[in-house]
Amino acid sequence: MSTLKIKKGTSKHSAYDLKDPNADIIETHTLTVIVTNEAGVLARVIGLFSGRGYNIESLTVAEIDHEGHTSRITIVTTGTPAVITQIKAQLGRMVPVHEVHDLTEEGPSVERELALFKVAGHGDKRVEALRLADIFRANVVDSTLESFVFEMTGTSEKIDAFADLMRPLGLQELARTGVAALARGPAET
């Protein structure tokens, strides 16, 4: 259980506590939410985050069980421990939500993201881009005489690192899917 730490700082001039009383420790958590795949369910989840002022770092969604009409939403969010607990409680009480799991808290998990990088250039830069792509185990999925599109799967940090390297070498465009994640081991989340 996380503890709620209250800081001083209430405005004397408002009925409302305008400052976030917990604005001290910010954590990043990966949540996986199993929902009924019905119209508007993603809007509900996103609306909860925007309406209550929670952060979304990344969000992915797709149907995972066609027969059972269920989808998995993977959300990477940041907040204080109290806010993270509140996010899980708010998600959990939504009618179409079946399960909420905090992969960050529940044990080891694997997190992967897929990204496409369009890199254009000539000469040494082009050679260097291809060499680095090889080191990062990115695949070339499109090629012209002056450009490549690389495909890479990995953690968000790995994709960030590769993007940083490609920028001076002619990175034109970047597309990322957001994080998909599962708990390690045989048990179902």
């Binding site: 709620l4 209250i6 109290a82 509140q86 708010q90 959990g92």
Partner: peptide, 11 residues
């Protein structure tokens, strides 16, 4: 009855 009411404002 609402889990989201718990620890929302007061621990």
């Amino acid at each position: 009855i609402d889990p989201s009411s718990i620890n929302k404002v007061i621990h």
